[in-house]
Design a protein around this nucleic acid. Structure first.
Length: 635
DNA sequence: ACGCAAATAT
DNA sequence: GATATTTGCG
């Protein structure tokens, strides 16, 4: 036998072996091509499975081996594998960022002769020719899978320890770390869990993945958002129901937490008498809770809801806390949804797929819009506050979403009615969306960051009230608010006041970033210029601001940022707000800590917040800046 | 299949 | 040591 192989091999057999590489990801494809060439193979590439299939059909003898990514938009890698197996007898090696044994098994069962986990190492490629040899050797006709499956696993399984949750390098989409490299093929005996014990690869919920998750929930509606369905909706290769269930569990916990916080605040507010508007502060939660009921029909979304305008929207607006949270997420999600929808994403690739920066005002367009300015105004009046307190909680933009979710999940439909009443005026839909942003913005930051101890320092603005959103929801941000704002400080200031939300949109910032924007806006109130700067900074990456926002949010302020903004122009407004701020409770010093300097803020807004590591640290200097703006103004 | 909580892995 | 995930169970 050996002899035969050798024979086949010929002189320099491996060299020149014709390999067709298929991967929709240009980066990965390029890398793969490079590596294959280094192995001296004759490489042909295509980023479309369909094209690959066409080439193969054109001339069945044109290639010796096919190496294909598992998840591709135009055709599932497994499908391609299956077709190749059916129509021609070529060894196929599957490629994926996901090392989930189930996937590997699927590949193997479908006839893959190997399954490699990205990032691929050249060592793994050096010996792929063995598959070609094997195939020839064992006879063309009988191939079957019996023999080949051998090593599929070796690729699998390695944990990746990447801490990255999001970040680090987006560039390389295909990177998943591998612990070691030595093992070329074979043998590792010990560690190899090939055979039996496969430990599930640990799934790291990147922001993108989480975003998808949120999207799915939105799409399904909280009520229907159960692991299985979420999994299906997410359509992420390699992700298991258990993974989703686990994450859902965590998410619900998060929502609960938020909700709780909000409630508390509300109560606090009430006690203080802060409120103004008369609404309920706290109700927030309750209100949400019901949303499940209310909407009944379509569950809509928790996360995204804003867009949809589902229950959330209502809830939010009116009231409370949640609002801001929701919004952000909403924003983001929509956009992503688009992306996600078509193709399957593999866990690994996910990040790649979802750009952090989504900017799509368009999304909104699609969405319903419903809120009118009027509504907004109403909101102003009413709403008021957000209840949220927790620093952490808030910190994330997602909170809103979460809240809503929570409500559904956690809370029962209790108070809704109350909430609703209050809110009724508000628009549902998009409003929610917009709201959120506002809220964020509003929150002021504390100054006191440095000294957590006393909450006093923090000034919070209330964002909740704002419903600036209307803007958002209805239109493209940009149109309303021109980026210019920032450009032109002066104008900006005014502008902002009028339309808080707008800014962000105008900027074209990604939804995620909204929160930041919000912040900016806030800042504007105080000092336009500063705001602009802040904004810019934020964009760059100092996410701090957002975080701050969240933290502060606790808000209870009667006035809310939104109010300020909406009112426009008048500084007076600000002042009023400030007064409120004064109250502030100081709730929790911790709030501050929540911020991170890092830059993910945008995410927060979504539900992403949940994803952030909780930290309690002092706020970065940057944040301080904000303070100034915001209220500092002192004015 | 779900959701919770204990067990683990990071 | 605290979390994030996975696993086990009702």
């Amino acid at each position: 036998m050996i002899v035969e192989e050798i024979r086949y091999t010929d002189e320099n057999f491996p060299a020149g072996m014709r390999v067709l590489a298929v991967d929709d990801d240009p980066t990965c494809l390029k890398l793969l091509e490079t590596l294959l060439r280094k192995c001296r193979y004759n490489v042909t590439t295509t980023n479309q499975a369909r094209v690959a299939l066409e080439m193969l059909r054109e001339n069945k003898d044109r290639f010796d081996l096919v190496i294909s990514d598992v998840h591709m938009p135009d055709m599932d890698g497994f499908k391609l594998l299956e077709l190749i197996g059916l129509e021609m007898d070529l060894p196929v090696i599957m490629l994926s960022v996901n090392s989930d044994p189930e996937l590997v098994l699927k590949g193997v069962n479908n006839g893959a002769c190997d399954y490699l986990v990205k990032p691929i190492r050249i060592e793994e490629l050096r010996n792929i020719w063995q598959h070609v040899v094997r195939r020839k050797k064992y006879d063309p006709k009988n191939q079957n899978r019996s023999s080949d499956q051998t090593k599929a696993h070796q690729a699998i399984g390695e944990g990746h320890g990447s801490p990255s949750a999001g970040n680090t390098d987006q560039n390389e989409k295909c990177n998943r770390k591998r612990k070691d490299d030595e093992d070329e093929f074979d043998s590792n005996d010990d560690e190899d869990e090939d055979n039996g014990a496969h430990k599930k690869p640990r799934v790291t919920w990147t922001i993108q993945l989480h975003t998808q998750f949120l999207q799915s929930i939105n799409q399904l509606g909280i009520e229907r958002a159960v692991p299985k369905k979420i999994l299906e909706t997410m359509n992420v290769e390699g992700l298991t129901r258990e993974n989703v269930a686990s994450h859902l569990q965590k998410y619900r916990l998060y929502l609960k937490k938020i909700n709780k916080a909000a409630t508390q605040q509300a109560s606090m507010d009430t006690a203080l008498g802060v409120t103004d508007p008369g609404f309920m502060n706290m109700g927030s939660l309750d209100g949400f809770g019901d949303f499940r009921t209310s909407s009944g029909a379509r569950p809509t979304n928790v996360a995204l809801s804003p867009c949809t305008g589902g229950k959330f929207g209502r809830l939010n607006s009116p009231g409370n806390v949640n609002i801001h949270n929701l919004t952000p997420s909403t924003l983001v999600q929509p956009s992503q949804a688009q992306n996600m929808s078509n193709s399957t994403n593999s866990v690994g690739k996910m990040h790649h797929v979802l750009p952090t920066s989504n900017r799509n005002p368009r999304l909104f367009h699609g969405i319903q819009p419903p809120l009118g300015l009027d509504q907004l105004q109403h909101n102003k009046g009413n709403a008021n506050f957000n209840s949220i307190n927790n620093s952490r909680t808030f910190r994330t933009g997602s909170t809103g979403a979460a809240l809503s979710s929570l409500n559904n999940l956690v809370a029962g439909p209790m108070n809704n009615q109350q909430m609703l009443h209050g809110n009724v005026q508000q628009p549902l839909n998009s409003g929610g969306f917009s709201n959120q942003p506002a809220s964020f913005a509003l929150e002021s930051f504390n100054n006191g960051v440095s000294e957590p101890t006393s909450v006093n320092w923090q000034k919070r603005v209330e964002a909740s009230k704002m419903h600036p959103n209307p803007l958002l929801s209805a239109e493209p941000f940009h149109s309303q608010l021109p980026l210019n704002v920032f450009r032109d400080n002066n104008s900006a200031g005014t502008y902002l006041q009028n339309n808080p939300i707008v800014l962000s949109s105008g900027l074209g910032l990604p939804p995620f970033e909204v929160s930041r924007e919000m912040q900016c806006q806030v800042g504007l109130m105080g000092n336009v210029q500063n705001m602009a700067q802040c904004w810019a900074e934020q964009r760059q990456g100092s996410g701090v601001l957002n975080q701050k926002m969240d933290m502060y949010t606790g808000g209870r302020s009667s006035v809310g940022v939104s109010a300020l903004v909406q009112q426009n122009g008048n500084l007076a407004t600000e002042s009023s707000s400030r007064s409120n701020e004064d109250f502030l409770f100081s709730e929790q010093p911790k709030l501050l800590s929540g911020f991170t300097h890092q830059g993910y803020d945008p995410l927060d807004e979504l539900g992403i917040a949940m994803m952030k590591p909780q930290q309690d640290e002092a706020v970065p200097d940057d944040e301080f800046v904000f303070d100034d703006y915001s209220f500092g103004a002192g004015m």
